[in-house]
Computed example of a mutant assay.
Amino acid sequence: MEEINEKYIAINWNEIEDMIDKLTWEKLTEQFWLDTRIPLSNDLDDWRMLTQKERDMIGKVFGGLTLLDTLQSQDGVDVIRSDVRTQHEEAVLNNIQFMESVHAKSYSSIFSTLNTKSEIEEIFAWTNANPRLQWKANRINEIYQNGTALQKKAASVMLETFLFYSGFFAPLWYLGNNKLANVAEIIKLIIRDESVHGTYIGYKFQIGYNQLPSEEQEVLKNWIFQNIYELYTNESKYVEELYDGLGWSEKVKVFIRYNANKALQNLGFDPLFPETAADVDPIVMNGISTGTSNHDFFSQVGNGYLLGSVEAMSDEDYIKWQ
C-alpha cells in the first residue's frame, strides 16, 4: 500500500473550536425553507391590480436581486472558503452557499407565477445590461477575485447587509399595504437568512481584523468606508432608476443608508450615515419585524425575523436566537 504522508481529518462536531460555528449551523438549519412551500399564485389578484409602472419596477427589482444572489452563490462563498479557520466554519459556508442558490431560484419562481415568458425575457435582458447593476456586481466581484481575505469578507457583508436592500424595499412596502403577501413572505425569509449570513461573516472578519497591527487596521478601515461610500453613490442612482417613477426614491435611499450602517456594524465599525431605524418608512420596518407566516404546518420555517437583531456578532446574540 502506498504510504500516506498527510492525514485527512474527519470533522468532529463533538469538539468545537468556535461555538459560533455550531450555533450558526443550528440556526441556519432550523430556519431552512424552499420557495416551493410558498403559495405565490395567491398573489395573482393583487398583481393584476397594480399599474404597469409598478409591475415594471417589481420585475426590475427582482431581476437585480437575482443577479446579486447569483454572484453570491457562484463566487462569494467560494472565495471566503479558502480562508476558513475551522472545519465547522467550512460546513457553515456550505450551507450559506446552498441557500444563496435557493434565494436566486426563488425570484424565478416569482417570475414564473406573475410574468409572461416574454416579460421574463425582458427582465433578464434588462438585468444583464443595466450599467448601475452591472457596476456594483463587478465592483464586488473584483474584490472577490483580487482582494485580501479580509477584504473579501468585508465585500460579502456589504453585499448581504447593504446592497440587497434597495430591492427588498418594494415587497416590504406592498406587504405593509396588504398586497403581495406571499411574494413578501419569500423576501422576509431571504432577509432572515441574510441577517445570519452577514452577521456570521462579519464576526469572522472581526477576528482577523483584530489580529492586524494598528496601522494595517486603519488602512483596511479606510478602504471599507471608501467602498461603502462609492457603492452608496452608485446605489443612489440605481434607486432613482427603479423608483423615481413612483416617487419612492428618497424613502428607499433612507432605507439603504440605514442598512449600509448595519453592514458597518456587522464589521465592527461605527455608522457612516446619520439614519437610524426611526428614520426608515415605518411600513417597511413593520414588514420586516412582523413574524413571517407559517405556510408549512409541519415546520417552523416561518418563525419571523427582526431586523433590529442584526448587530455586531457576540455570543449573547446567538444565545438569544436559540
Rank of each mutant, 00 (worst) to 15 (best):
E235V: 02
Y203G: 15
D69W: 11
D46Y: 09
S108R: 04
K253R: 08
E15S: 13
E230K: 09
M1S: 15
E311F: 10
T86V: 00
V310D: 12
T116V: 02
P271K: 10
E235L: 07
Y200L: 03
E241H: 01
M313W: 14
W135L: 04
I319P: 04
E185N: 11
T70R: 10
R55Y: 03
V92I: 08
E230Q: 12
D83Q: 04
I191T: 13
T113L: 00
A155Y: 07
S41R: 14
T51V: 08
S108F: 15
E121C: 03
L220F: 10
S101R: 02
L220K: 07
S236H: 00
N178H: 13
T199D: 04
N261E: 03
N286W: 04
I191G: 11
Y107A: 01
W135G: 00
D56I: 10
K117A: 11
A312V: 12
T148M: 01
E275I: 05
F111E: 07
A104C: 10
L40A: 03
T36A: 08
M158R: 05
V183N: 08
H197T: 02
K251R: 14
N294P: 06
Q74S: 14
V254G: 01
A184I: 07
I190G: 00
R37E: 14
K153W: 07
V301F: 15
E119T: 08
L50E: 13
E241M: 01
G302R: 04
